Lab assay of single mutants.
Amino acid sequence: MPSETPQAEVGPTGCPHRSGPHSAKGSLEKGSPEDKEAKEPLWIRPDAPSRCTWQLGRPASESPHHHTAPAKSPKILPDILKKIGDTPMVRINKIGKKFGLKCELLAKCEFFNAGGSVKDRISLRMIEDAERDGTLKPGDTIIEPTSGNTGIGLALAAAVRGYRCIIVMPEKMSSEKVDVLRALGAEIVRTPTNARFDSPESHVGVAWRLKNEIPNSHILDQYRNASNPLAHYDTTADEILQQCDGKLDMLVASVGTGGTITGIARKLKEKCPGCRIIGVDPEGSILAEPEELNQTEQTTYEVEGIGYDFIPTVLDRTVVDKWFKSNDEEAFTFARMLIAQEGLLCGGSAGSTVAVAVKAAQELQEGQRCVVILPDSVRNYMTKFLSDRWMLQKGFLKEEDLTEKKPWWWHLRVQELGLSAPLTVLPTITCGHTIEILREKGFDQAPVVDEAGVILGMVTLGNMLSSLLAGKVQPSDQVGKVIYKQFKQIRLTDTLGRLSHILEMDHFALVV
């Protein structure tokens, strides 16, 4: 994948999101292997301009796509893939009243899908469409860049269908997702969380590099694949309309690839034109409109599966009536509230959605109805927002919020430890010299600072030695090549209790 991002070429006709291997024109390309080798690009942008032909009021008969309808489940399912879809609609009884809503608040519980998330729908649909058009064949390999849930859905379907599955996901995604993927037989590649989507090191860039190296491999490409919004247009939206008897006044959905909100909203605009569509985008993402909503100094966020630093091709923002931004604290607070007060075992993005819903639905009156999409299960986040310690460490809970008995030293300040200034190293000294210094002084790690004293990161003896043994660096290389740029900081005025929580999850903390 090139470091400079080429513009994806656009073909003359058809839909841009065809499933299957992508040609340089962004659509299915038939021909000899030699032709494909000559024409197939190194990668295709996940934010390529959409060429979708959908228009409100256009006859369904003019759609270029294969459409399906929700099917009634048999008493005995032939395999677990038949437990994807037909998820329950559940009334939220307490939270709406707590925040003064007059309307009825309903939750579409997508964590009841077989793999635990709304992404099971698009995973199965992308595979079925690729099999139907002859792209996927027995023994082929599926590769997908994902925040985890699409990966789980694909790995689940691949396990049943017999495909090899490789999932490329950023490091910030939970260990629970990784464990589930491994249990399903998927191979996992992790990428830096802070890598831009168009960087060769991003999950998108690495996935395309693997595709170019592995024979008979395919990126189904949830960011561009029409099967993504079509899955929701054909099934999720129809289920909502049936469950609500066609009567709903507002739908609120958090947005990642945009397939969920695009597919549902398009069908609702056709069948229930008075329904307002509300999009939820986390602070630090750029999906919301108008652009002024996205202006923030924050560039990272903890909530998973929603928000991006690019506009995915499948996201149709014209069908969203209003956007709201959400933050991590309210997302996790509301997710825990949904679990504790409503018994809905949902993930953090569901918290984002409901946090926005109780604001947006203030305009609705008694007798009206708001539906929220709860995308995934708490299963993926047992060591994250479900953990009091994690919430404390991230600053989303305060010590006084917890009532468990603490040891005698818990409320003492870090400054009472009488710490001395640490050994520091410059980023320009060599790895070999740094190892000598650390061994001589008896230290395992040291902060790396520039000549102005600005902290650049941390270097550890173990990481340097393993990097040297693996051949990633040489003793003569500058130590700046092996620094940890993500590390926890703590102030002298913070409590030892807070430091204790940090050290339970990290090997060190830097006192500043």
Score class of each variant (00 low, 15 high):
S3M: 11
P6A: 09
P6I: 02
A8K: 10
E9A: 14
G11T: 09
H17T: 11
G20C: 03
A24S: 15
G26P: 08
L28W: 11
S32I: 07
P33R: 11
E34H: 10
K36L: 14
E37N: 11
E37F: 12
T53F: 04
Q55Y: 11
L56E: 10
R58H: 13
A60R: 11
S63V: 07
P64E: 08
P70G: 11
K72V: 10
K75Q: 11
I80A: 06
K83N: 13
K83P: 09
T87R: 06
V90C: 01
K97A: 02
K97T: 05
F99N: 09
G100P: 01
G100M: 05
L101D: 00
K102M: 08
C103Y: 00
L105V: 14
L106M: 14
A107K: 03
A107Y: 02
K108R: 01
C109A: 10
F111Q: 02
V118Y: 05
V118Q: 05
S123A: 09
M126P: 01
I127R: 01
G134N: 08
G134W: 07
L136A: 05
G139L: 07
I143Q: 00
E144Q: 07
T146W: 01
L154D: 00
A155P: 04
V168Q: 03
E171R: 05
E171N: 07
S174H: 01
S174E: 03
K177C: 00
K177R: 02
K177Q: 04
V178I: 02
G185T: 01
A186V: 09
V189R: 06
T191D: 04
P200R: 14
P200C: 03
E201W: 11
V204T: 14
G205D: 10
V206W: 01
V206P: 03
A207N: 00
E213V: 11
S217M: 01
D221H: 06
Y223P: 00
N225E: 00
A226W: 07
P229W: 05
P229H: 01
H232I: 04
E239R: 07
D245Y: 08
D245P: 09
L248R: 02
D249P: 01
L251H: 05
G256W: 00
T257E: 02
G258E: 03
T260R: 06
I261E: 02
T262F: 01
L268V: 07
L268C: 02
E270S: 05
G274D: 10
G274P: 05
C275E: 01
